[in-house]
Amino acid sequence: MIEIKKVNNRPLNLLERIYVWEIFKGFLVTARHFFVNLFCPGKIITIQYPEITRPLEHAAKRRTRHRLKMRANGTPKCVACFLCATACPAFCIHIEAGEFTSSQVEKYPAVFDVDLSRCVMCGMCVEACPEDAIAMDTEVIPGGVLKREDMYLTRNKLLQNMPGDPSIKGAANRLA
């Protein structure tokens, strides 16, 4: 909650200008923190991030690593319409379309790369997707990898999906 804090800007009195007493007061504050944290380490609010994570709340869950959804028949729901790439402010999505000759939905992503090192996790791709094919609900927070390639999500990595019901939202998916 954002609050307005009124700052008291009165001139310093003599005791404060001598500074010693004020430093001592500050010293007591830091010392108190030191001893409280020394004897009750459990109360330190800092968490050991990669090992311990806090459960993501509300919308934060929808701003995690991307995935591509699948249809019931196991094909990617994505039809390579490029709208996510168009909406992406970080230019981190690279798509190359391929053509199915058999299926009614003739277009599919032959290449679908998300460069996580450029991604700003804004969720615009999810907003833009007309097929409900891309989602950012894996609850995996990207970052901290040892190799550059690991920041590069290819189509197959994106298609490693969470279990869930395949939805038929999206115009082109009506045909599938």
Partner: peptide
């Protein structure tokens, strides 16, 4: 370690 404890951190570990 001291500065981390003062600042409610965990410090080197």
């Amino acid at each position: 370690k001291l500065s981390s404890l003062m600042q409610d951190r965990v410090g080197p570990n």
